[in-house]
Nucleic acid binder design. Structure first.
Lengths: 129, 129, 129, 129
DNA sequence: GTGGTCTAGACCACG
DNA sequence: GTGGTCTAGACCACC
């Protein structure tokens, strides 16, 4: 696993697990890999893993059973809420970024449409022309 | 100016100036505010400003005239290229993030369309045809 | 049984049994539930129960008859002493905590009086005369 | 500084600082000692200090200025609220503990009264009226 | 086996 | 100088 250099690893791991839960890789109530396993898989120190999981526990996305492991919340509503929030945030960030570059709403809409078409289309056409 | 807490300020300033150049706030060859002015304006230490500008110099987006200040490149092509690159990267990041949440291409396209419509208002839906 | 997360479970169980003995739930010489029963009842691993009981044995509050079970001490004086000690300690801890918050003796007395009145309800205020 | 053995040091430090803020040792907006100073004062590793402060930041009792240090919140209401909460919790804990020992409300009230009188001395018994 | 705490020490970003 | 992140490694509580 390679991580971006300009944002703390533990936050990237937090995002990663959030995404995996939303994507359904870990279902409601499912057990996460042990911190030691995650440490090996992600090639990151155990303490860093702990810090990431700690954040998720505080968000109540996961919970810990002593001596048994970490588990995904059983609250479907909470996960749905998280998904909506993360999607919204992703779109907001994109929009904000494009606006900061001086693009108008029309231009942004145009780019999004174009991008969607390319991604949906048959061939892999690079976006930068 | 408010900065995110989890990414280095100098990188955020670098992005900011990049965006302002792309947006045309600073035209080709234009002089940037002095380091001291930027420091006051952004409420950030001078050293941090310097670090951000150094990065931009290395990208050749700006250049320094000793004792005179910092200036935007006069290479129109370079700016155009930067713009294309940043837009592309922004869209890629968004897409990658949504895909990581397990969304299909169709779902992503759906969300993008929806988002554009919301942002445009009901009177101008050039995204829907 | 719900346990606090930040203090070892075996210590919480030790306290619990101490309290039950003091409260008279288990009389002098009475047999405690089996380790296995306690394990089920408290939803805690047997090893943890054992560790708690070992502590109590060392305090001489209970004793073990091999193959027969664990029994409350027959020494009434010892139990009385334990009760006095635990009550004293509880009050000391409370006082120490409030003092650490900067409360004066008068303020502490005030809060205690107030609390007693609330807990007693309006129909039985033998604390106020 | 000596810490209890059965509760994590970082939580004890969290409590300590909470108490000091409530007690007015650190006023609103005041700067806390640096993590390095606290580490020396309390004879505890820097990381443990960080963990404690991190909790306080999340409670919004303190906030961090990058490169400058940690500061007590300027929200008087928040501190007042914290004080009320901690006092209430302290009294609840005490009460719960005594009840678990089988003491009746009357007995508890009696002990509290007695304790107050002892602590106040004979010359100032404003607790009895 | 599981997670949690603590230490020692290194390196980075910011003022 | 300030706080933040990360690592390596030890020890503990619990299953």
């Amino acid at each position: 696993m390679k991580f971006k250099d300009n944002v703390p690893i533990y936050l990237q791991i937090e995002s990663l697990i959030n995404q995996q839960i939303i994507a359904g890789k870990y279902t409601l109530g499912a057990k996460l890999p042990s911190v030691r396993d995650l440490s090996v898989q992600l090639e990151v120190n155990i303490n860093t893993i702990q810090k990431a999981l700690n954040e998720l526990v505080q968000e109540q996305i996961i919970f810990t059973k002593r001596g048994r492991g970490n588990f995904v919340t059983t609250d479907a509503h909470l996960v749905a809420q998280l998904k909506a929030q993360l999607i919204h945030q992703t779109l907001e960030n994109m929009d904000e970024s494009l606006q900061a570059m001086g693009l108008s709403k029309q231009e942004i809409a145009h780019y999004l449409k174009l991008y969607s078409q390319e991604r949906m289309g048959l061939d892999d056409q690079n976006f930068t022309n």
